[in-house]
Design a protein around this nucleic acid. Structure first.
Lengths: 213, 213
DNA sequence: GTCTATATAATGATAGAC
DNA sequence: GTCTATCATTATATAGAC
């Protein structure tokens, strides 16, 4: 089976409706809080029909995860190397990733839920690969910037990468909460948010005369 | 009822055992994935006895949340203003909060779960207050630093505060995943992690000659 | 306060007709 | 492929004895 075939796996229109409903519900409430009846209802079909297409609830969940991961991997590929300095790359990557995250909330939430919460074990392994993948790419970009003399060599590249991922992921996760906090003015303009984050990470908060290095 | 009374609310030893078990299980698996039988088993008692002490499952959940929130509020109070510059305050706060977070994982996870995931609505409101509380304090510290001329005035204080909270919260959440990624070397030394984060936030990643401001 | 036993409803899953 | 009807299990919750 070639690499391309692996990404083909077609679904019938009925299956697609089921998967779509499952993705929304699982992402929203989590595995245990979602009943097969609820999925059937949302997909405008019957419970036995779901069991006709998927072996059991866990099987459906894994299939849902799989499509989410596939979408996430495709999105990551589109963020691949544009021309520019490592710093520019990092900014583009962070902004692009945040945009993608918000454009595919269900996939993101599903993957994050599995990656962060301890639950179904084999689904978690899949989710960890996605998260780890992003993390590796960011780390490599930071290291490249250090090699080229753009970044300080005394910072831990993995830590810098982690901070950027944290800024994006936590922004996504905390969004419902933050919308309730009027003081936070970065909610409505994600481009400005991403720009502000990278400004601090690159230039720091301190005034010039206070900087140490 | 005075403010002190509000924080007293005593529980019998039997109730404490139930609450303790409930906190661990709810934090680990979430509301729907935990059965009353499982809680009873873990608390070494029977299901009807839980119903003797708590009206229903949701009532027990809310009581569990309440104790977690109370603990979190107490911890926040201990982080109050030590002497030093706003920058020093922020560093201390970030380091102290991270330490507390890791010392009370169950409470933290319970609150974060409610605050971040859309679930039981009234529990979410409580959790948001806790998160919002931390956020407000951090924002105030940043503003103070700007007023005193330590920090750049062109950065958004709420954004800077959010980044610090993101670094702490996401560190906690992502810990299971990060432990699987050997490249990340900041896992075992949380003091070093916190120091590294604040170094980047204060001084930035760029080398001196590359800095803009 | 704590238990055994049980009522009641919902869940995951299947049989079998069309 | 899709359904109605149903099974077996487990869940929340309660009655009532001690």
């Amino acid at each position: 089976m070639t690499k391309q075939d692996k990404n083909k796996k077609t679904y019938s229109s009925g299956e697609k409706a089921i998967l779509e409903a499952a993705e929304i519900l699982f992402a929203e409430k989590g595995f245990d809080a979602v009943s097969m009846s609820a999925i059937a209802k949302m997909a405008n079909t019957s419970k036995p029909n779901i069991y006709h297409h998927f072996k059991n609830k866990n099987d459906l969940y894994m299939a849902t995860m799989e499509t989410a991961v596939r979408r996430s991997a495709m999105l990551l590929d589109t963020l691949e190397s544009s021309p520019g300095s490592p710093g520019q790359h990092l900014s583009d990557f962070a902004a692009g990733q945040l945009k993608n995250i918000l454009e595919h909330k269900n996939s993101t939430q599903l993957i994050l839920r599995e990656a962060l919460m301890t639950s179904s074990e084999n689904a978690r392994v899949i989710a960890e690969n996605v998260v780890g993948n992003v993390f590796s790419r960011l780390t490599a970009m930071v290291e490249q910037g250090q090699k080229e003399g753009q970044f300080r060599k005394d910072i831990d590249p993995t830590l810098a990468a982690f901070m950027m991922e944290a800024a994006n992921m936590f922004f996504f996760q905390a969004r419902p909460v933050m919308k309730q906090i009027p003081e936070a003015n970065f909610n409505d303009d994600i481009a400005a948010y991403s720009k502000g984050v990278m400004d601090i990470i690159f230039n720091g908060m301190l005034l010039n005369e206070e900087k140490k290095s």
